[in-house]
């Protein structure tokens, strides 16, 4: 079998470590303790965990947005762990990110047109402005937004519309890999279902590999092939979603699942204490 598109082995990330002027070492806080992740072509993996589990740091490390203190990251056969910025730049187009808060990630002073057209020209994905505009028009239709959106600013759109712009922006650059970090956590359920379905379709159509970070196991179950369950900077369980969700091997995964309230009345649910809840 061919090598995964994106693979990390023994990944460690430490925040805040430094050397003082006197040359003394100050230890930082280690937030990832040797994590292994492999994402095959066309595969969507989920990274799930509670706050402080290191899921966001793991995502950022995979994209080389934070420095790693140990371990190796390989993208499409190349070791990118310590690749200089100049050599990273051509890869940046191929590794895109969709952010949690589209209001914070879209420039409020730019029109949607500018937000979508500029990266196409910058990365040379489109020949000229005319071709870029054509592609933008096509993707808008794809994410079911009216063309009139193009002349708006981000704040004039609803949360769900903004998140679809975030998806369109990433997809336009024809990436191989997309990282989506908590992209539906601020949305209403009805909007959330639309955005997730759209993402699912796009990733299938474009053959994307995707890492989907969420604290919500139900969302992960809905769109991922495999899942990594993280706790305190370590992967406590990994496997295909069908298996992990129906027969979790780790008591921690079991506890996370038991803590999800389902929309069916279950008079005992509230009083069922699972595992070592207080330690969570």
């Amino acid at each position: 079998m061919s090598e995964p598109l994106l693979m990390a082995t023994g990944l460690e990330v430490t925040y805040g470590g430094r050397r003082t002027l006197a040359g003394q070492r100050v230890d930082g806080v280690k937030v990832l303790h040797g994590v292994d992740v492999a994402i095959r072509r066309g595969e969507t993996i989920g990274i799930v965990g509670e706050s402080g589990s290191g899921k966001t740091t793991l995502g950022r490390a995979l994209l080389r947005l934070v420095d790693t203190s140990a371990g190796e990251i390989r993208f499409d056969g190349t070791d990118i762990t310590h690749l200089p910025d100049a050599n990273m730049r051509p890869l940046r187009r191929r590794m895109q990110m969709i952010f949690q808060d589209p209001m914070a990630s879209l420039n409020p002073r730019h029109t949607i047109r500018r937000i979508l057209v500029e990266p196409l020209l910058l990365h040379g994905v489109a020949r000229d402005r005319q071709q870029a505009e054509q592609r933008v028009a096509a993707i808008l239709e794809r994410v079911t937004l009216p063309q009139a959106c193009l002349d708006r600013n981000p704040h004039e759109l609803s949360g769900g519309q903004r998140q679809r712009i975030g998806i369109a922006r990433a997809a336009l650059l024809e990436p191989d890999f997309v990282l989506a970090d908590e992209i539906v956590s601020g949305l209403d359920v009805s909007t959330q279902a639309q955005v997730l379905n759209l993402l699912k379709e796009l990733s299938t159509d474009l053959g994307l590999s995707m890492a989907f970070i969420s604290h919500d196991l139900s969302v992960i179950r809905a769109i991922c092939d495999r899942v990594y369950v993280m706790r305190q900077g370590r992967v406590v369980e990994e496997g295909p979603c069908e298996r992990v969700f129906s027969a979790p091997a780790s008591p921690y995964t079991r506890m996370l699942l038991d803590a999800i309230p389902l929309p069916e009345v279950d008079p005992d649910w509230l009083w069922r204490v699972s595992g070592n809840e207080d330690a969570a």
Partner: peptide, 16 residues
């Protein structure tokens, strides 16, 4: 029907 469910992956996620 719109809410995703970890126990019934085929049931949820139907847009309104």
């Amino acid at each position: 029907a719109a809410g995703p469910r970890y126990d019934r992956p085929d049931a949820g996620l139907t847009p309104v």
